[in-house]
C-alpha cells in the first residue's frame, strides 16, 4: 500500500507545471524516505531531479518500494482538476497498474477521484557526482525568470559569467545584443530579494535559452533560485519546495566549436 497526502494540492500543481515542458513521462520512485523522480528531456540535454521527503507530507505510508511510470501530460491534466486548497491524496496498491488521485475540498463536501493508468518504463538512472562548484549564486527566482525571458529575445543562448563582482547574463543575435549584470546585494533586509555569490573561481558558460525558460516554470515554488556552475560541467538550477523537498534541473552547457 502506498498513500501520500498533502493538505494543499497547490504544491503538487506547481511541481507538475515545473516539469511538464521538459518531461513527457517519468518514473516516480516511492520509498519510505519519500518520492523521487529523475528524468531527462527527450533530447537528453537536461535532467530533472525531484525529491519530496516523506516527512513533508501530512500523511505518508509506503509499505514496499514502488516505481510508478507516469505520463506527465495526463498527471498535469488531473492536477488541474484540483483546487489549490484541496487536500490531495495519492494512493496505489503494492504492485499497481493504476494510481488514484483523491481531491477533497476544505469543507469536505466535495470528493473527487481520478484514476490514472501507469506505464511501463525502462529505468535509466544517471549517477550525479558530488561536485564542488566554482560559483554558487542565490538570487530572486522572479529576477532570474525575467532575465531569461528578456534575453531570449536576442538569441537562442544565454552566456552566464560569474565573478566576485557579480553575475552577468548576456545574449547576442542578428538583431543586436543584450546583457544584464547583477551585483551582490550588500545588505538586503529581505532574504528573498538578496543576490549572494559564493565564488571560488570565475566561470563563463553558455546555455540554450529554451531549457532555461522551461526551468523558470518552477518560479512559483520558491522566491529564490540557486545556480551552481563550474567550467565545462552542467549548470544546476535548484528551487526549494517549501519544507518538503527540492527540484533540481541540470543543463549541459554549449561547447565551443
Amino acid at each position: 500500500m502506498f498513500e501520500a497526502r498533502l493538505a494543499q494540492s497547490a504544491i503538487l500543481k506547481k511541481v507538475l507545471e515545473a516539469v511538464k515542458d521538459l518531461l513527457t513521462e517519468a518514473t516516480f520512485e516511492c520509498s519510505d524516505s519519500g518520492i523521487q523522480v529523475q528524468a531527462m528531456d527527450n533530447a537528453h540535454v537536461s535532467l530533472v531531479s525531484l525529491n519530496l521527503r516523506s516527512d513533508g507530507f501530512d500523511k505518508y505510508r509506503c509499505d514496499r518500494n514502488l516505481s510508478m511510470g507516469m505520463n506527465i501530460g495526463t498527471m498535469t491534466k488531473i492536477l488541474r482538476c484540483a483546487s489549490s486548497e484541496d487536500t490531495v491524496t495519492l494512493r496505489a496498491v503494492d504492485s499497481p497498474d493504476n494510481i488514484i488521485f483523491i481531491f477533497e475540498s476544505q469543507n469536505k463536501e466535495k470528493l473527487a477521484e481520478y484514476e490514472m493508468k501507469l506505464i511501463n518504463m525502462d529505468l535509466e538512472h544517471l549517477g550525479i557526482p558530488e561536485t564542488m562548484y566554482s560559483c554558487v549564486v542565490k538570487m530572486p527566482s522572479q529576477e532570474f525568470a525575467r532575465i531569461c525571458r528578456d534575453l531570449s529575445q536576442f538569441g537562442e543562448a544565454i552566456t552566464i559569467a560569474c565573478s566576485k563582482e557579480g553575475i552577468k547574463f548576456s545574449a547576442a543575435g542578428d538583431y543586436g545584443n543584450a546583457n544584464v549584470k547583477l551585483a551582490q546585494t550588500a545588505d538586503s533586509d529581505k532574504e528573498e530579494e538578496a543576490v549572494l555569490i559564493d565564488m571560488q573561481e570565475p566561470v563563463k558558460l553558455t546555455f540554450a535559452c529554451r531549457y532555461l525558460n522551461s526551468f523558470v516554470k518552477a518560479t512559483p515554488l520558491c522566491a529564490q533560485v540557486k545556480l551552481s556552475m563550474s567550467s565545462d560541467v552542467p549548470l544546476v538550477c535548484e528551487y526549494q519546495i517549501g519544507e518538503i523537498g527540492h527540484i533540481r534541473y541540470y543543463l549541459a552547457p554549449k561547447i565551443d566549436d
Binding site: M40, H44, H125, L126, T206, P234, A252, I255
Partner: peptide, 14 residues
C-alpha cells in the same frame, strides 16, 4: 553559439 552538449555525456548511466 557552439554545439549543444548532452547531459548523459556528463553523468554516468548507472
Amino acid at each position: 553559439t557552439g554545439t549543444q552538449g548532452r547531459i548523459d555525456s556528463f553523468f554516468k548511466v548507472l
